[in-house]
């Protein structure tokens, strides 16, 4: 392809958009809406996932053992627990260790535990279990119930279940809205390109008579669609970056409690979102123009 030909395609594509400004703008707005929803869903889902991961690191399952087991019994239980699927690590905590940890947690007020030693320690023997993924917590709990000698199981089930459910609902809702807006975008782009084709009827007719190839005639219209897609994808991202940063800092400011969880950084989010949104925008634009060309440009 000659550079002059590429220049011609770009020039014709841009002039088509300009002559048809209102429809061009409608198409861009439709793509923008679609990309905005996609970006918003991704921001929320990505943050929920990030938070879940932090919880996986901090929250495990604690298993308490009744009575005073022998060290063989403890070893035996540890092996059994280790064999359960998705169990990453099993750490045995003796009542003495537990007492030390408790004292450390209370810091300056550790004197309330004074008088407690190995002979009268009320704390149980326990295992601290770490999982490879939080979603498998249920199956691990089921398996634990089958092990003899376990007195009590403690875990952060309700919180994780809530976040997991929220994540799922968000993913599905976001995907559905994105799909609907995507279809609408493609339809509006198709209409824009159709008007552009009709505007250039005479030109296309002459091009055919002088022997222009079909692709030569099609390219400017594809370029039109791609430009709509690119602009429609870039605008919401450029607007989105400062908005995301603002929302995150506002959340930290108004709810100091949530400082213990970390939101994803602006850079982390947009380094993924940029190429994906751009590709998706170009895809919408291309599908819109190609289907329109196939329908209205019999070359």
């Amino acid at each position: 392809m000659r550079p002059s030909t590429i220049k011609y395609y770009l020039k014709e594509g841009l002039s088509g958009l300009r002559k048809n400004l209102l429809m061009t703008m409608a198409s861009i707005i439709a793509v923008m809406a679609c990309i905005s929803i996609m970006s918003f869903s991704y921001c929320v889902a990505s943050n929920l996932h990030h938070i879940l991961q932090q919880m996986e690191d901090s929250i495990g399952i604690s298993v308490f053992i009744g009575g005073t087991p022998t060290s063989e019994e403890i070893e035996e239980m540890k092996t059994q627990i280790s064999k359960i699927d998705h169990v990453l690590e099993v750490r045995y905590i003796s009542p003495g260790d537990a007492l030390e940890e408790l004292k450390a947690d209370w810091g300056a007020e550790e004197d309330i535990f004074e008088g407690l030693d190995e002979t009268n320690n009320p704390l149980s023997h326990s295992f601290q279990i770490t999982l490879d993924e939080i979603e498998s917590q249920d199956s691990v709990l089921q398996a634990l119930k089958g092990i003899d000698g376990i007195d009590n199981i403690r875990h952060g089930q309700t919180e994780t279940e809530l976040i997991m459910k929220a994540n799922k609902v968000f993913n599905i809702a976001g995907f559905l809205v994105m799909l609907i807006l995507g279809v609408i975008s493609v339809m509006i782009i198709m209409n824009t390109i159709r008007i552009s084709v009709v505007n250039r009827r005479v030109e296309i007719n002459i091009m055919k008579y002088v022997g222009a190839t079909d692709w030569f005639i099609r390219w400017p219209f594809i370029i039109e669609g791609v430009i709509i897609g690119v602009v429609g994808a870039l605008l919401p991202l450029i607007i989105g970056i400062p908005i995301y940063a603002k929302i995150i800092s506002a959340l930290y400011n108004y709810f100091p409690v949530i400082k213990i969880i970390q939101f994803r950084l602006v850079g982390d989010i947009f380094i993924v979102l940029f190429p994906v949104a751009l590709a998706f925008g170009i895809l919408l634009g291309t599908i819109g123009s190609v289907t329109s060309i196939r329908k209205h440009l019999r070359v």
Binding site: V202, E203, N205, I206, K208, Y209, V210, G211, D214
Partner: peptide
């Protein structure tokens, strides 16, 4: 077809200029 048409110049009654 485009390559066939490059062998044929065409003139119409209504000129068909841009």
């Amino acid at each position: 077809i485009p390559y066939l048409r490059r062998n044929l110049g065409v003139v119409f009654q209504d000129f068909r200029l841009l």
